[in-house]
Write a protein that binds this DNA or RNA. Sequence first.
DNA 1: GATCCGTGGCA
DNA 2: TTGCCAAGGAT
Length: 356
Amino acid sequence: MKNLDVSSFQNDLISWFTKEQRTLPWRQDTDPYKVWVSEIMLQQTRVDTVIPYFNRFIRQFPSIDALAEADEERVLKAWEGLGYYSRVRNLHAAVKEVKEQYGGKVPDTPEAISKLQGVGPYTSGAILSIAYGVPEPAVDGNVMRVLSRILTIWEDIAKPSTRKIFEEAVRQLISHENPSYFNQALMELGAIVCTPTSPSCLLCPVRNHCQAFHQGVQTDLPVKTKNKKQKRVQLAAAILVNEEGKILIHKRPGSGLLANLWEFPNTEMIMPLRNEKEQLGDFLISEWKVEAELKDQIGQIEHIFSHLIWNINVFSGMILSDVEEQANLKLVSLKELEQYALPVSHQKMLKLYLSD
DNA sequence: GATCCGTGGCA
DNA sequence: TTGCCAAGGAT
């Protein structure tokens, strides 16, 4: 590698990680299943957020077999609040696949492991290197940031095609003696030293190898184009109770936003100027044949997703008709509701209702 | 390649 | 307050 003493770089990086790595629950051992779970949870999600979820999840589902045999409702409930719920549905499906097709052992080749649902290029490399010591690249956002600075790579890291450039770089740099620590060290460095804004270059174990530091351009890298703004969507939702005090909930479709999570009945306001309570009442009858007496609005909620914003006007009401329960439509008591995974937006609605 | 898919923290 | 993010993958 041009302008870089690879052996010295590996040594400085791995020595630093050996000494300075954070103690984390998924670093207690290298059980491929636990490495796998942690890597899925850590996708686009901060370490501090993941820690309690990881501990609970492993307690509930300690092994491939335990997770493979679990009901999806329980699995989704364990993921409630973490976001990107397709991650856990894919993990669940993939774990069943490993149990059935690989005798319960997580595959140890790039070809096999990459076929598992939810396992892309990053996760494949992470599991192979950390759990099995295979020298494969594991290029995430941290790695692209760190290496863009060390090697002064000016490609736009927001473009999917750019990842290949960094994978090629890692193949030339990775330690074959300890690929696990090499990959983890790059990510750890990105997380606690080589941060997006104001990197701590004076504390960096590899600053002598860093071209951006030498040129004083570390804050100009990486190059990353901006995201688009979220779209706003106006919703009206109802927390409806029957004469027994049971609450009406609806299971969302199996694909798309918040797939398979439960929610309070709601509908998008296509005509924002028309009376919302009327639109909501019409929706309840036409969609669910539920006649309800809606009270005045009990509040409003704004919920921000990565790509859209929900503005929800929340109503409460009494169910006047009989409800025909279906697989995706249930009446549950407040206590039973605890068994169902709700999106955070609907947890906010419930809290609003209970304090009303 | 562009878009979809969550959430909470922080400058 | 607003934007931007944080150990990505599927379509």
